[in-house]
């Protein structure tokens, strides 16, 4: 388990295989949730995660691929699109400025 100082998070990338469906939907949801904290949320194919991503979110089944592409980035896996606890965890850490475990 590593930790990241959540106050340093400026950009969250939602990655999926094709970058055309799942990640687009989730990025839309999260960007409204995180906008008050000046955190940008963008979507990308898992093979094209941008270098300036502070945190990467992707479906659990893609976590290994995301980590292989960006070994130095915190990668959080989720299993549900609506209401997965990891979204709350991320939002709370960003809001409260605490440590984010990953």
């Amino acid at each position: 388990m590593s930790t990241l100082d959540a106050s340093t998070i400026k950009k969250v990338i939602v990655a999926c295989d094709a970058g055309m469906g799942s990640s687009v939907m989730l990025a839309g949801q999260l960007s409204s949730a995180l906008a008050p904290y000046s955190v940008k949320v963008q979507h990308a194919p898992v093979n094209q995660i941008p270098d300036d991503a502070d945190v990467v979110l992707c479906q659990q089944g893609l976590v290994a691929r995301a980590k292989a592409v960006k070994p130095d980035k915190p990668v959080l896996g989720f299993t549900m699109f609506l209401g997965d606890p990891v979204f709350d965890k991320l939002q709370k850490a960003i809001r409260d400025g605490g440590d984010l475990e990953y």
Binding site: A18, M20, G21, N47, F81, L82, G83
Partner: peptide, 14 residues
């Protein structure tokens, strides 16, 4: 591609 609330969003690969 199941996203919840009875909805799936089938699509292709990159």
């Amino acid at each position: 591609t199941f996203v919840g609330e009875g909805v799936a969003i089938p699509h292709g690969t990159n």
